[in-house]
Computed example of a mutant assay.
Amino acid sequence: MNNFIFENKTKAIFGKGCVKEYLSCLCKCNCETDTVLLAYGGGSIKKNGVYDEITAAIEKSGKRVAEFSGIMSNPTYAKVQEGARLVRENNVGLILAVGGGSVMDCCKAVSLAARYEGDAWADFWGRPGVIDFEPVPLIVVVTAAGTGSEMNGGAVITNEELKVKTGRDYPQLNPKFALMDPTYTYSVPVRQMISGGFDTLSHIMETYFSAPDEPNVSDDIMEALMRGVIRDLRAAIKDPEDYIARSNLMWEATMAENRVIKLGKKCDFECHQMEHQLGAYTNCNHGEGLAVLHPVYYRHICEHGAKKFARFATKVWDIRPEGRSERELARMGVETLASFIKGIGLPTTLRELGVDESTDLKAIADSCACVPGAYKVMTHEEILEIFRECL
């Protein structure tokens, strides 16, 4: 394995009833002032009882609530600036992010921007920065599984003016605590649950399909996680309130992005780069965009990483290797992935996401970063070719 340094300062509290049991004490002990900023998305938490449980816990802690609502699915830098203003105006001492990855990502950026006098986008997202100050403390309550944002410092933010969607991972932005009650995900629409589950699978594949290719612990863990996500998505689609499946999907999402599986790996994430820019221009659903792109992208690179793609076929999809060449197995693994995507109801073309010939695919392709960790480094011309094949 390659050399690495590992750090994860987030304490995960997982299981049914964990919010009611722990949140009040955590707010009391971790809020630096008398005000907690309660951040959430479109208001679904007010319909499913989560909001009432959360606010009751904050009131029990003796803290005042300031609300930051309306965080969108692709959080913008303008929304981050709005949240930072609320933190400063209300003398907030703790941010409580309740939601999925978008809410968590936005709040990580808010926790930084609220205590930074410069241009947070330019200095921390436009380019890598150095955080030499303490961001506002952050606790997250996960209500939608998929991004794994609850146990890392990553935040994907869209700058609408620049048409750039990018993510940075700063360990200083890790939440202090992540409260994870799988029953909170029951009210998530099935389509969103499937999209989030595929995002998890994508995170794992983007790490798996990269060097090193010799036997290593990270790849072994990822094969088990991929098999688990596939199994648990199928079970959750059959019964959306299957607690075993939903709890597994929640922890699988966390394991995909808590930095453990990335140890010693180069990582690819070209497909994420492509989807991020597609999202910056079209605001398409992240997981669904990845589902469309992945098979086409892998058809372009699988022969360059045939050994790993063949292993993917046999270890993850149980394809028998007898009588098949490495390249044949590699292609079969990709096509089985494509069949799985279609079988669980995810879109398979960009047209299904509202993208057509009127979309400036060349501009999107030219805006994509070409990452060095892939088995084959893309050119902007090949990225455009992939987009067109996805139509």
Rank of each mutant, 00 (worst) to 15 (best):
A97P: 02
G100P: 03
G100N: 04
V103E: 09
M104N: 09
D105F: 12
D105V: 12
D105R: 13
D105A: 10
C106R: 01
C106S: 03
C106Y: 05
K108I: 01
A109C: 06
A109T: 06
S111Q: 02
Y116I: 01
E117G: 15
G118S: 02
G118V: 00
W121G: 08
W121A: 12
D123R: 03
G126V: 01
R127A: 15
R127L: 12
P128W: 05
V130C: 14
I131S: 11
D132V: 01
F133T: 06
E134Q: 14
E134S: 14
P135Q: 03
V136N: 06
V136T: 14
V136Q: 07
P137N: 10
P137V: 08
P137Q: 08
I139P: 09
V140E: 12
V141W: 02
A145R: 08
G146L: 05
T147F: 03
G148F: 00
S149T: 13
E150D: 04
M151C: 11
N152D: 12
G153S: 03
G153P: 00
G153D: 01
G153A: 03
A155Y: 09
V156W: 04
L162E: 13
L162W: 05
K163R: 15
V164D: 08
K165D: 09
K165M: 10
K165E: 11
T166P: 06
T166E: 05
T166M: 10
Y170L: 08
Y170A: 09
Y170C: 08
Q172A: 15
Q172S: 14
L173E: 01
L173F: 06
N174W: 01
N174R: 15
K176A: 15
A178G: 04
L179V: 05
M180N: 12
P182V: 13
T183C: 13
T183H: 12
T183Q: 13
Y184F: 15
S187T: 15
